[in-house]
Design a protein around this nucleic acid. Structure first.
Lengths: 329, 329
DNA sequence: TTGTACGCGTTATCAT
DNA sequence: ATGATAACGCGTACAA
């Protein structure tokens, strides 16, 4: 059922039908009503491809993330989808799995499908090849990074000050008289790097003892945190507080601590990052940096929409995180 | 840069270019190479809309869920996206929030964009209006329900036997000499109903005491489980084991139990459902019904793809869940 | 092996 | 207020 069929049945031209569909002016109420009734009768839906062919847009955006199974990303993607859906756009979801080839293929696909814009969630896009590809070929599509980092010309970003988040963990623990603080860093991302820098800056600021044994690495996740603490204890390193780069890793760490007979927070204070549901599942509940998922997501969506509508936008928005104090410190 | 520009620059016709792009036969290696070099030079990508106009398909599917923030849905959506991505399809993500109007709008949008198929994740689509709309208008698009339920002609489904999952919890607890078992049901879904029936069947099968006080309701989630246990204890009901309809609700319940000084599993045994990460975060780790997220997701994807390719498929696939024993029982 | 010309369904332009 | 027709970019039957 296309516009010709409708026009024929209504005894008018396709132009008239098109006018009715798109609520244009210069239509008599009488014809309008007649056409509308036939439209409804056949439950007519316009062909989006033909529309797209004219306007070279089908009102859609691409959302690329490493893995939507990660709570934080899912939360971000959800908010973005909801916001854009209200604006009449649909969202194409892409999970790269962190792989270069996949990432580039997703960009290609999104370009073929002529999305109006792209949002990148998370900071796993610093692969040189990806960067090169994007800055070379994806020139005319606006890109917004939600909590990510990517040096390209058309790259705008909304991010949380990860540096500040961890810095304030140190500050808070220092106020609580902790002097032996260690940091467990997970994942090789830009964000993780910034967090580490925040830790170092904080430790230096408050004159706390800091050397290479103060920072250890963990595979991201529950098991990662568990193993990292296991290793840390094995080294004999003394500490009264652990700062983790992510909640879920902290939960794994606490698990190990408790197994070893350490009490939290009496023997060791622990902080996490994300203020996710894991912080509340945990026992004791986890003090965590709230990195404002929804705010970041909504601002990213708004920014991309502004870019699509050619409005002026500032290239970077930085959000200050909050420290949520709970029972683990 | 369109196919005409390429043709002009290569000194051939658009047909030839089209042939090269689509790897058709009857092309001399010489022309093929020449065209390919120009294609690469301009990083030409065909216009998907024009293609879609011809084939009336743009190789995409819709994935509709209530809320991608729910771990289980995110996991399912992830697997589906990965599987379809490998087949050259892209995925449009829709979160209905459980609202009727939104749901219908998403169906409309997916039809306009002429997706090749739709997967519904979860069992929150039993709204009468939605059902009516779908069975009336979405006739020619194959629909697969991943762990969901919807009575429509073109609705195929892959689901986990929720009934059996809970039934086996009862069976297991009975073997462990529990006689006073209660069930905490959350959410008003088809799935939740089936679980409840499994509980009743199990209790009857093993001659365990069962009345209206054996089943209580909880709002889904951490707080929901917490409050449900609070209320349960307040009623004075005696119990030695609690079966929960979802892991996260169980985690909330255990939290309350521990606060009240009950030991798990010594004083109360607890089981969850989903075998999610929450089961492993929990202390003690949670015995949980593994409802095979990935299997369900992959089979749903395969089923939809088969339907798209007009292959024969059985209308329902039922997966048997596993009971994963951990320390909470 | 290669090219011409038409159709896909819509919107926009110009004429009536 | 309404209509005829071009244009969007591609695939393809048919012609050469």
């Amino acid at each position: 059922m296309n516009i010709y069929d409708i026009a024929r049945e209504a005894g008018v031209s396709i132009t008239t039908v098109s006018r009715v569909i798109n609520n244009k002016e210069n239509i008599s109420d009488k014809t309008k009503l007649k056409v509308e009734s036939i439209l409804k009768k056949h439950n007519y839906t316009p062909n989006a491809f033909a529309r797209g062919l004219m306007s070279s847009s089908i009102k859609s955006i691409g959302v690329i993330t490493v893995d939507i199974r990660k709570q934080h990303y899912a939360h971000t993607a959800f908010t973005i989808e909801q916001d854009f859906s209200k604006l009449g756009y649909s969202v194409i979801l892409c999970n790269t799995g962190g792989k270069t080839t996949e990432s580039i293929n997703y960009f290609k696909m999104l370009m073929e499908k002529k999305v109006d814009g792209i949002i990148l969630i998370g900071s796993i896009f610093n692969d040189q090849k990806v960067k090169k590809y994007v800055s070379k070929y994806v020139k005319n599509i606006p890109i917004v990074l939600a909590n990510g980092h990517l040096d390209v010309d058309n790259g705008y970003s909304v991010l949380v000050d990860d540096f500040d988040g961890i810095y304030r963990c140190v500050e808070y623990l220092h106020k609580k008289q902790h002097t032996k603080i260690v940091y467990i860093k997970d994942m090789e991302t830009y964000s993780a790097e910034r967090k580490k820098e925040g830790f170092i800056a904080g430790m230096n600021q408050y004159g706390l003892m800091l050397d290479e044994t103060s920072i250890s690495e963990a595979v991201h996740g529950l098991e990662g945190g568990y193993e990292a603490v296991e290793k840390l204890i094995a080294t004999g390193k003394e500490f009264s507080a652990i700062i983790f780069g992510e909640d879920i890793t902290a939960v794994g760490g606490i698990k190990k601590l408790k197994e070893m007979g350490w009490r939290v927070p009496e023997d060791v204070a622990v902080t996490g990052f994300d203020n996710s549901i894991f912080a509340k599942c945990c026992e004791p509940e986890l003090t965590s940096v709230d990195n404002k998922v929804e705010t970041v997501a909504s601002l990213s969506a708004k920014m991309l929409h502004d870019l699509i509508e050619k409005k002026e936008v500032s290239s970077t928005i930085m959000i200050r995180p909050d420290l949520i104090i709970r029972k683990s410190t």
